[in-house]
């Protein structure tokens, strides 16, 4: 009996050590590559949301839920991640539905141009900090490149062990504690880099979205229908990568056929008031804080007017939670 207890103790210490090393060697996504922390921040939310955003950097850089709240009292969260692929959006939507059922899901259609996994690094930014669930497993299987292994996701030390010689202060500082780096999924960037020249528009051999990505879009549409969620398709006002007219026509047609609303903000930039000389931090790829504020206000008005969302500013409990966030948000802007 004593031997059995000691064996269990030894194995227990081994598992704890493994857990500790796993944590130590995995990237912390706190001061560098912060995009890898975004997916995790949703789990700490204390309230439900009426609007959930899904998509790639075009959502987390361009829509600020706290501005939308201040403007129209809309509760929302951006569940966007770097280069979020459409099957990842579907998985994240399924996961979200385990926690809450929003009234509206906003999906940025830029991901439809990607039919295959792009890179392991992007997969990692989306998946490393996602909670374990059947959805996560499905996303991993669908997202893995040929050279990747499922085991590396299950036990990250297998992937990150070589960081032992590259550990930085960040790895020790955030070993046991973490900070949020977004505000309801919005990543603040105050830098300004005006649009000077845009990459040349390449001619593509084929402009049709693949059956594969359309199938995932159908799944998202069906899932929203089943849960009585209004699905809104959007295209953020990024100037590149180039959003071809052929792409846009297909989305318009899809939206029409499925009775969905589609907003392409590229054509509305003037109306929104976006100035690409001051409102972008990387020459037109993403909006900066100032551009995102304009877009968020504009979209908040649409959501409020057209979809009759609740104004939570009159709800004392929720308002106090949001006001606390807004104080932190304003502090971060001023810093």
């Amino acid at each position: 009996m004593k031997k059995v207890c000691l064996s269990i103790l030894i194995i227990g210490i081994f598992i704890l050590s493994l857990g500790f090393l796993n944590r130590l060697l995995s990237p912390k996504y706190q001061d560098s590559l912060v995009e890898g922390h975004m997916i995790k921040e949703y789990y700490g939310e204390e309230m439900n949301h009426e609007v959930i955003f899904l998509g790639d950097c075009e959502v987390y850089a361009n829509f600020s839920p706290l501005v939308m709240y201040e403007e129209e009292g809309i509760t929302s969260f951006v569940r966007g991640t770097s280069q979020q692929l459409i099957w990842q959006s579907l998985g994240i939507l399924k996961e979200t539905l385990k926690y809450e059922t929003p009234r509206i899901v906003v999906f940025n259609v830029n991901a439809l141009r990607y039919d295959k996994p792009v890179s392991e690094a992007y997969n990692r930014l989306t998946l490393d900090n996602m909670k374990w669930s059947r959805e996560k497993l499905e996303i991993i299987k669908d997202s893995m490149l040929e050279e990747e292994s499922l085991l590396d996701y299950i036990l990250p030390i297998l992937r990150y062990h070589s960081r032992f010689s590259k550990l930085t202060k960040e790895d020790f500082k955030y070993l046991f504690s973490e900070k949020n780096i977004t505000f309801n999924g919005f990543l603040i960037n105050k830098n300004i880099k005006p649009v000077s020249s845009l990459p040349t528009k390449k001619t593509l051999p084929n402009y049709n979205f693949s059956d594969n990505v359309l199938e995932y879009l159908n799944k998202i549409t069906s899932l929203c229908e089943e849960n009585n969620i209004k699905l809104i398709l959007i295209k953020a006002p990024s100037l590149y990568p180039y959003w071809y007219q052929e792409y846009d026509n297909q989305i318009k047609k899809y939206a029409y056929q499925n009775n969905l609303d589609y907003y392409n903000f590229q054509g509305l930039a003037t109306e929104i008031g976006i100035d690409y000389q001051t409102d972008t931090y990387d020459g037109g790829l993403h909006l900066n804080l100032y551009g995102a504020t304009k877009l968020s206000k504009y979209f908040a008005h649409i959501l409020k007017e057209k979809y009759n969302l609740t104004d939570y500013r009159v709800n004392e409990e929720i308002n106090s939670l949001y006001q606390a966030k807004i104080i932190e948000y304003n502090k971060a802007i001023e810093e």
Binding site: L21, S149, H161
Partner: peptide
């Protein structure tokens, strides 16, 4: 055997961290 188990666990940790393998 308990001492051996301890050594085995220790060596596995060493290999996991300092081994050159993977992607």
């Amino acid at each position: 055997n308990l001492t051996k188990l301890t050594y085995i666990c220790f060596i596995i940790l060493i290999i996991l961290v300092f081994g050159v393998y993977g992607l």
